[in-house]
Design a protein around this nucleic acid. Structure first.
Lengths: 218, 218
DNA sequence: AACGCAAGAATGTCTTACAATCTTATTGAC
DNA sequence: GTCAATAAGATTGTAAGACATTCTTGCGTT
């Protein structure tokens, strides 16, 4: 009866909170790319001890959100054009794959959410507002990734998105590449949405069940 | 003159060494999946202080090589079938993309290396020796990923490979899926190698230069 | 065998300390 | 004024110690 239900309350550790707060601050652009994070200041700001902070910084380093240079401390990295492009390439690869899988797996209620998010995304594209493009795209792809049937895909994608986010501080250099990527994915996504709709219409009389996950077949 | 050349010797920090040693030990299966790592024992074994160890453990946690459960400590995770499958799926996705890009970018000397590695891989497949399959596949794909022109792709792939490696402790459950994936990629890779060879033959009279990296075109 | 309690082990967090390295400021020579 | 050398200050890397809290194990009772 209770075997699958874990009602235990697990208080969030200082560690978890420190990591999350720092991650959010970095992604939000609180620290400009290239800037050094000074441990003593962070300890004071976060109200944690130095060892706790250092543990958190190690975590964020492994996520590539910061770069810890021995004897000089942690920095928020400046993404080179090349690295940013590579991140976008891989991200796009994952997104295209996620869209394809999402089309086969998504639940009906989520299709409506997806369509709403796609419209918001397209509106942002038209308005050419950089921040809107980023946030609406994030929402759009969050739905897709959540419904692609592969948690690892979602997780890797999330990590890459985080790494790209603070380079929004340098919008001019990336705008061209980003818009191209967004346009391409939006186009293929709309195509898939249409294919999805017709497939669903064909299946309307059968009971809709989500296919079981199994090793992918190409 | 010296502006691009950094001759400074950077000694490896305790931190770096600890992370690396632990990572290798985990990947090598020194700690069975599901087992708990006890900090005091690790400190004694590695000869480092507890704060240093804890920093390293946070790093490895972010790499998903261990799972730190609050108040219970770090564990080497047991990969569920589902999670392992998902990792393989994403890994395959990256590998197929890498192969495609490698075909366009690889230098001639590396083609020979690739062919040699592919042969070793095929031999291992025939012998059905699990460890050989893992190691020859790793070598094979390391060449491909190193020549795919995208460091992020390589990096993400490497992370996923690491996560899968210690589940070699449970070969029976994964052998089927792994063999399928390997077969598929070997087939498509041989196809691409052949396409690569004919493309190179066509270009034999022109000076071979590596194309400049730019945003991918589909 | 099941339950409750105590003891022991281990983790999470903090404080203190110090060596080493880097950064900044100061001084002296030209 | 410029440049180089030195000193001072700031910061990082690592370790040791302390203690509260939580979990695990062992033991006794029913």
């Amino acid at each position: 009866m209770n075997s699958g239900l874990d009602l235990r309350i697990t208080p969030r550790t200082v560690q978890q909170q420190t990591i999350e707060k720092l991650r959010l601050a970095i992604i939000a652009g609180v620290f400009p790319p290239g800037s050094r994070l000074v441990e003593s200041q962070l300890c004071a700001q976060l109200g944690v001890s130095r060892p706790s902070l250092r543990e958190a910084l190690r975590s964020l380093q492994a996520e590539r959100l910061i770069e810890i240079i021995p004897n000089r401390g942690p920095f928020v990295p400046k993404l080179s054009w090349e690295e940013a492009t590579e991140i976008y390439d891989v991200r796009e690869l994952l997104e295209v794959a996620a869209v394809g899988r999402c089309a086969a797996l998504i639940a009906p209620e989520q299709v409506k959410e997806l369509e709403r998010a796609l419209k918001a995304f397209e509106r942002a594209q038209k308005s050419e507002e950089s921040l809107d493009m980023v946030t609406t795209a994030a929402e759009f792809y969050a739905i897709i990734l959540a419904n692609c049937g592969n948690a690892i895909l979602e997780e890797v994608h999330r990590g890459l998105v985080a790494r790209i986010s603070f380079s929004a501080a340098d919008p001019c250099r990336l705008r061209g590449a980003r818009r191209t990527v967004f346009r391409r994915c939006a186009t293929s996504t709309m195509r898939l949405l249409r294919a999805m709709k017709s497939a669903r219409a064909r299946r309307q009389n059968a009971t809709w069940t989500r296919p079981r996950l199994r090793p992918s077949v190409r």
